[in-house]
């Protein structure tokens, strides 16, 4: 045989190369940001003066200087808002996804459209909120509702696909014939069996809401400054390294959130 590569192994090499490139494009900026957040100066191409926690301290509002613009409270504020939005989606989105998958009913198509409709850009929903609820749009409550609405399609679509892969009707009928009421069936059988999808939906809605900028920028008026606004202001005014620290903190938070949600997903639903 010849020593020429077969088309199949060529394709494999090409895919590996493309995947590697894409990963590099994604990961390098994050790594650079993370590393330089510990540098003293970033005026040149290569940041210098390692290692300092000064920017992290400033970003977290732990120094006197940073107290003015630090994100200390803002970061936790955003975490709370995103968590609130995620819970609204769990409570509303999971039953909607269930109904859409399990039942044929009048208006099903409409509900399906409505559930996916908030996939509008945040800026548009922001304007709509400002016009409709001028007094409440910028409050914590308004932000939670806005985040929940904006991210609900991700929850509904992900959970719906989990439900579609299950034999919902027979699972439900088995549980009910064994004496479980409908609500109990839903909580002890249906939801735990879809936990993969529910988990994915939770992670997506949380991380997207935690850094939502457009909507926040449109409606924000008072109260602690959400994380995305802090970042925006620091990119325009403050030195890059402080933003780098803030972005790094955000990434740490996202990783932590994913770990927490996965742990909950693995252990939190099991019933005996």
């Amino acid at each position: 045989m010849t020593t020429l590569r077969t088309p199949q192994s060529l394709g494999k090499a090409a895919i590996t190369l493309v995947t590697g490139l894409v990963l590099a494009v994604l990961v390098v900026p994050i790594a650079v940001t993370f590393v330089s957040s510990f540098a003293q100066s970033a005026t040149g191409v290569v940041p210098t003066g390692f290692v300092t926690a000064e920017h992290w301290r400033t970003a977290l509002g732990l120094t006197d200087v940073g107290a003015r613009r630090g994100i200390g409270s803002g970061l936790w504020f955003s975490v709370l808002l995103a968590t609130g939005g995620m819970f609204v989606n769990l409570v509303v989105g999971v039953p909607i996804a269930y109904a859409l998958t399990r039942y044929e009913f009048r208006g099903r198509e409409w509900l399906n459209t409505l559930a996916v409709l908030p996939l509008v850009p945040g800026i548009i929903l922001g304007i709509a909120f400002l016009r409709t609820y001028p007094d409440n749009a910028g409050t914590a409550f308004g932000l939670v509702v806005g985040y929940a609405l904006l991210k609900s399609p991700y929850m509904v679509l992900t959970v719906q696909s989990a439900f579609q892969s299950m034999d919902l009707r027979r699972l439900e009928e088995s549980a009910r014939s064994l004496g479980a009421s409908w609500p109990r069936t839903f909580v002890t059988v249906i939801v735990p069996n879809a936990r993969g999808g529910i988990l994915a939906g939770s992670i997506i809605t949380w991380t997207l809401a935690a850094a939502e900028f457009n909507f926040t920028y449109m409606v924000y008026t008072r109260g602690p400054r959400p994380f995305s606004l802090f970042l925006y202001e620091n990119i325009s005014r403050a030195p890059f390294l402080q933003s780098a620290a803030a972005i790094s903190i955000y990434f740490c938070l996202v990783v932590a959130a994913i770990l927490v949600l996965q742990t909950v997903g693995r252990h939190g639903f099991t019933t005996t």
Binding site: D167, R170, E173, S174, A175, S177
Partner: peptide, 22 residues
């Protein structure tokens, strides 16, 4: 009478076991 109060055992072709439990 609703299904959960009838006390009937159901066995399906597709088994329909609860995968979240042992």
């Amino acid at each position: 009478v609703s299904p959960e109060r009838r006390n009937v055992g159901l066995v399906f072709q597709s088994y329909a076991l609860f995968d979240n439990m042992s």
